[in-house]
Amino acid sequence: MDTAPTTAQGQPEEPGFPGAGTGSATPERFTEMQASAEFGELRSAQRSFAFPLTLAFIAWYLLYVLLSNYAGGFMGTKLAGNVNVAFVLGLAQFVTTFLIAWWYSKHAAERLDPKAEALRGRLEAGE
């Protein structure tokens, strides 16, 4: 398994291989940018928001799946007319999905976009 990737990866890439993106920033420039404090802030602003939230909504969804499977009595409890707990929890999944999408977009517009634009501007100016 080790040999095939090694030989292929060892070869120099053809210039401008598809997918590489454009721009004339040098490899050193990317490494330098990645190590910078500003980039660290952008990365942690993205990860510290998106990662816990992803784990949270997947856990919330799985909780709902498990309740549907193993807590039939609870899910069948009627709340208003024929509307039961299962229905309300199902609709709650819709509501949380809409809310998380809205919340993430707000966070991205306020915290991520300005930082990303500033760093991109620096890379472009360096060309």
Partner: peptide, 12 residues
Amino acid sequence: AELEVRALTGYG
């Protein structure tokens, strides 16, 4: 480094 910088900043 190049992938991460491009992916997060949108450079190039």
